[in-house]
Design a binder for these strands. Structure first.
Length: 141
DNA sequence: CATGAGCGT
């Protein structure tokens, strides 16, 4: 009943939010193939959340660069106010590095805050990209 | 100046 501000974490993030005192130690055996934890769909684009509102893009990129080559990294900030929204995106060169980056940075501390790494969504279709390179919707008039 | 659970300029 005291579930105020229910955690709306996308997946498996609540495990850290809910102040897990002790593991349930479920006697049940892990059923399933010993495959790697594949959360969501594999992609080189990672969505990093839980970032400190004062964390910069360079810091995020530097931290994730330890697990692989970061092609692109950015901390989402409000264009109007200019303050960080608290999350960012990190793109690795390969999915393999992305997977390591997720399992390597997910649940870690950054600037005093627990961060979460997960595959980013917002993709029209895999292997499909619009050739709109001559127009820039973000260009202010 | 400030702190949340969110998928971008």
């Amino acid at each position: 009943m005291a579930m105020r501000a229910a955690v709306a974490a996308p997946r498996g993030l609540r495990r850290l939010f809910c102040t897990n005192s002790t593991s349930p130690s479920s006697p049940f055996t892990l059923t399933g193939p010993p495959t790697t934890r594949q959360m969501g769909e594999p992609s080189t684009n990672l969505f990093v959340s839980g970032l400190n509102k004062r964390t910069t893009t360079e810091k995020l990129r530097e931290e994730f660069a330890k697990f692989g080559e970061v092609v692109h990294a950015r901390v989402v900030t409000d264009r109007v106010s200019g303050y960080s929204k608290g999350f960012g995106f990190v793109k690795y060169a390969t999915i393999e590095e992305a997977s390591k980056g997720i399992q390597g940075m997910d649940g870690k501390f950054l600037d005093g805050w627990v961060i979460f790494a997960e595959y980013a969504k917002s993709s029209p279709a895999p292997g499909q990209q619009p050739a709109n390179n001559m127009t820039n919707p973000y260009a202010r008039q």
